[in-house]
């Protein structure tokens, strides 16, 4: 195998008769951040735990920086992980939380001190170093968890929904911050989330997962413009893509921002509701081919009866049964 980064080769994990992961293969080069995106139960967290060694694999191989770590003990994998709950040791101060791992790895006191002060500085935790986790805010706890993960100079950083315990505004502020700290280093990053905005904002590439399969892997732009199937098309994009009633075994998907009002032709539509979004508005339309959501400029006052069409070339066709995209 190639030397740098993380490679998963046909990873499967079965629990009794249930298949949690199905032949997962992916590659994350050093310095890249890959987001695993999907609804709960899709296998994204399991993938992360398999890489960390907290869950065993049923078959397949895991390579990290050129080493086969498939059967390696979690403590010997050089993995830095940020848990969803942050998993900070409640009985230890911020400093104690950072120091414990280094003590276990028998790092000398001088070296421990040097590394801890560097990371405290980097994450702006110097003033908080004597506090207990219970005395920290959610964002501060996240920084401590991140510091702990980075401190051991890991070969890979794993993050399990690190933003899910924070409020929306803080998340917006933290996304670029997190990206600056994590990405472009000497290690690859795996980032698990169910929030597409977070995935797009932080990751270089995104793997959309469902039912233990990787549905599609690519840049956010690829996934949005060229989804391989209906699941990916529906999962990405907010407001969600419009799926019209199927005709002759095919289904038409139209993103709300690609729908236009026209004078002649197109579909007859009746306005059933308006949602004002500030800079834009979302119109709810009723047509004979199903309901449509349409995104338009906020200062346009739509008539109750109108005709709509879509930007040519932006429509997506799916097979009705399989959901696969037809090109």
């Amino acid at each position: 195998m190639s030397s740098g980064g993380l490679q998963l080769e046909n990873i499967s994990r079965r629990l009794g008769a249930r298949s949690l992961l199905h032949e997962i293969s992916l590659e994350v080069p050093a310095g890249e951040c890959l987001a695993l995106l999907g609804p709960s139960g899709c296998g994204k967290t399991t993938t992360l735990r398999v890489v960390a060694g907290l869950d065993p694999v049923s078959s397949g191989r895991i390579w990290l920086q050129g080493r086969d770590i498939t059967r390696l003990d979690p403590g010997r994998r050089q993995v830095g992980m940020v848990f969803q709950s942050y998993a900070l040791y409640p009985h230890l101060s911020v400093e104690g939380n950072l120091e414990l791992g280094l003590e276990i790895r028998r790092v000398t006191a001088a070296e421990r001190h040097r590394r801890i002060s560097t990371i405290l500085e980097l994450l702006q935790l110097v003033e908080l170093r004597h506090r207990r986790p219970a005395q920290l805010s959610g964002g501060q706890r996240q920084r401590v968890a991140l510091a702990r993960a980075l401190l051991r100079q890991p070969d890979i950083v794993l993050l399990d929904e690190p933003m899910s315990n924070l409020d929306a505004q803080l998340r917006d502020n933290l996304r670029p911050e997190l990206r600056r700290l994590l990405c472009g280093g000497r290690h690859p990053v795996l980032y698990v989330t169910h929030d597409q905005q977070e995935a797009m904002g932080i990751a270089d590439r995104i793997a959309v997962m469902s039912n233990g399969f990787i549905q599609q892997l690519g840049t956010a732009r690829d996934l949005y413009d060229q989804p391989v199937n209906r699941f990916v098309a529906e999962f990405l994009g907010r407001p969600a893509i419009n799926l019209l009633l199927p005709q002759q075994g095919h289904q038409l998907g139209l993103r709300p921002e690609h729908i236009r009002s026209v004078n002649t032709g197109g579909l007859e539509a009746k306005l059933t509701g308006r949602e004002w979004l500030g800079n834009q508005q979302l119109l709810n339309l009723e047509t004979k081919r199903g309901q449509l959501k349409m995104l338009t400029s906020a200062d346009w006052t739509p008539p109750t009866e109108l005709r709509v069409s879509w930007d040519q070339g932006r429509e997506l066709w799916f097979e009705e049964q399989s959901g696969e995209r037809v090109k």
């Binding site: 907290l54 003990d73 979690p74 403590g75 992980m81 848990f83 969803q84 998993a87 414990l100």
Partner: peptide
């Protein structure tokens, strides 16, 4: 997950 964090530290 505290236990798991310790395992990742190599404890």
């Amino acid at each position: 997950d505290l236990e798991e964090a310790m395992r990742l530290e190599g404890a």
